[in-house]
């Protein structure tokens, strides 16, 4: 029983890592302040679940199709949203994405009025259980590989240049706006991917799984891990999931309440003692840069 639970937590941690890596691409590498990342996870999750539920007789075929479709769809929708929204800078961008996240949550809350299967505030039930540990693990490794290769290429350097100094990036001949759009959409498509995996892991979706607090959680993870560090994000995601979720089964309720009190205190302490996060912008093992 416990083993099964740990396996599920581990798979969940993989999903969160994929999402968080996407946010790190957006904020850590490109410097686009986004407080609505979880909503893209929600879009991917609900969309893929709707597909697999509607065409469940195709089995794994529709599962894979739904995942690919979710990735492409979140990429396109976030690209379209980014076209107006990325004209905003720093805090204002954060507020606009936060607003977008809340709008998505409200739409999901009301989704049953259009698609009754989506369940609205009651949650979406009966999603086929396709996701298992090998699949998430394989997905995570592919995502890490792709991200690493992208970061250490022209695209990655463009993004870092933009984060470091927008005007200098322009002076380097970089099409700042277009690269930002691309980074935002790519990062969001990671979230869509992770959402699609997540939906078929727990087989139950609720709008509150993708609300403002989830977006904040993702932001916490990447800051804790270190902005602009893939190793940091991966380790912080796993630590975060295991400490916050994993302890739930082991500890008695009285201590669990205190866990939620101690966790923010640790957060405040870490921000003070290690402002650059666990890894800063360093990498370990083969995630290190080649130059």
């Amino acid at each position: 029983m416990i083993n099964l639970y740990i396996l599920q937590i581990f798979s969940y941690a993989c999903c969160i890592t994929i999402s968080a890596l996407g946010l790190n691409l957006i904020y850590g590498y490109t410097g686009l302040f986004s407080l609505g990342h979880a909503s893209f996870m929600g879009i991917g999750a609900y969309l893929s679940a709707l597909l697999t539920k509607s065409f469940s007789h195709y089995g794994y075929l529709i599962y894979i199709g739904a995942i690919i479709f979710s990735i492409i769809f979140t990429f396109l929708i976030s690209y379209l949203i980014a076209i107006p929204i990325l004209k905003l800078k720093s805090d204002y961008l954060g507020i606009a994405t936060l607003g977008f996240g809340i709008i998505v949550k409200v739409l999901l809350d009301n989704s049953d009025k259009v698609f009754s299967q989506m369940g609205g505030p009651r949650g979406m039930l009966g999603i086929p259980n396709f996701t298992n540990l090998p699949i998430v693990l394989f997905s995570l490794i592919m995502v890490i590989l792709f991200m690493r290769n992208l970061i250490y290429s022209k695209l990655g350097r463009n993004l870092i240049a933009i984060r470091e100094d927008e005007n200098a990036a322009y002076a380097m001949g970089i099409n700042v706006y277009k690269q930002r759009l691309l980074a935002f959409a790519l990062g969001c498509s990671f979230a869509g991917f992770s959402g699609a995996l997540y939906a078929h892991l727990y087989c139950f979706l609720h709008p509150s799984n993708f609300d403002f607090f989830r977006s904040i959680d993702l932001m916490l993870i990447i800051v804790l891990g270190g902005l602009g560090s893939m190793s940091g994000t991966i380790i912080a995601s796993f630590l975060w999931v295991f400490i916050l979720e994993g302890l739930r089964v082991i500890l008695p309720q009285a201590i669990l309440d205190w866990r939620l009190v101690i966790y923010p205190l640790l957060l405040i302490l870490l921000m003070l003692l290690r402002p650059q996060g666990i890894f800063g912008n360093k990498e370990i093992l083969w995630l290190k840069k080649e130059y």
């Binding site: 290429s153 022209k154 350097r157 463009n158 870092i160 240049a161 990036a169 380097m172 970089i174 130059y291």
Partner: peptide
């Protein structure tokens, strides 16, 4: 290195 970015033409 960043100065060469726009002169590079390999694809994504």
């Amino acid at each position: 290195l960043f100065a060469f970015n726009y002169q590079i033409n390999y694809s994504i």
